[in-house]
């Protein structure tokens, strides 16, 4: 009898852990998706800053700029997969992603494709190492970033934007 109740206790504890563990995993996955997305956008910012830095200094490192442009283009093509359903402002997790991403999917798709086109061009031009041309195309790529941020991102709070 003593042994029996202990067994039941272990089974019950195990069951509770399994169920609560399941909830935790579900809650985490939304947060994980959003965190992973934010990390990728931060890395995009890093690549952008690296190219801006070279443009500002007046010397373009062809190899480095090419790598940075390629990363940006890779992210651009991957970007449409970063916004699965239920990872928006109603997800309960803090995010700057606006509901419009999901309510205006065609506009969002068009904005992402514009970014992809400009980023692909940037990769080609970066390979030439022509700093003036890279500067001009980088401007266009930056505009594509902003073209998506304005309608689909809540302005970052309490910060220099």
């Amino acid at each position: 009898m003593r042994f029996g109740s202990r067994t039941i206790g272990i089974i019950l504890t195990g069951a509770i852990l399994a169920v609560s563990g399941g909830y935790v995993a579900a809650a985490e996955s939304t947060a994980d998706v959003i965190k992973a997305r934010q990390d990728k956008f931060k890395d995009l910012g890093k690549q952008a800053k690296a190219i801006v830095g070279q443009l500002k200094s007046g010397t373009l490192d062809k190899a480095a700029a090419s790598d940075e442009a390629k990363k940006i283009a890779e992210y651009a093509h991957d970007l449409p997969t970063w916004f699965p359903k239920d990872t928006g402002p109603d997800s309960g997790v803090k995010t700057l992603a606006k509901a419009e991403i999901w309510t205006k999917p065609d506009d969002f798709k068009a904005a992402a494709e514009k970014f992809q086109t400009e980023a692909d061009k940037l990769v080609q031009i970066a390979a030439t190492g022509d700093i003036a041309a890279v500067g001009a195309q980088f401007q266009e790529t930056g505009k594509a970033c902003q073209g998506c941020h304005k309608p689909f991102r809540t302005p970052p709070p309490d910060d220099a934007h």
Binding site: K42, L44, G45, K46, Q47, A48, K49, A50, V52, G53, K56, S57, G142, C145, Q146, H149, P156, D159, A160, H161
Partner: peptide, 16 residues
């Protein structure tokens, strides 16, 4: 700035 597109004039001295 948040997008790394328009850092201040001394932006090259610091990481993103």
């Amino acid at each position: 700035d948040v997008d790394g597109l328009d850092p201040g004039p001394f932006g090259n001295f610091v990481s993103f």
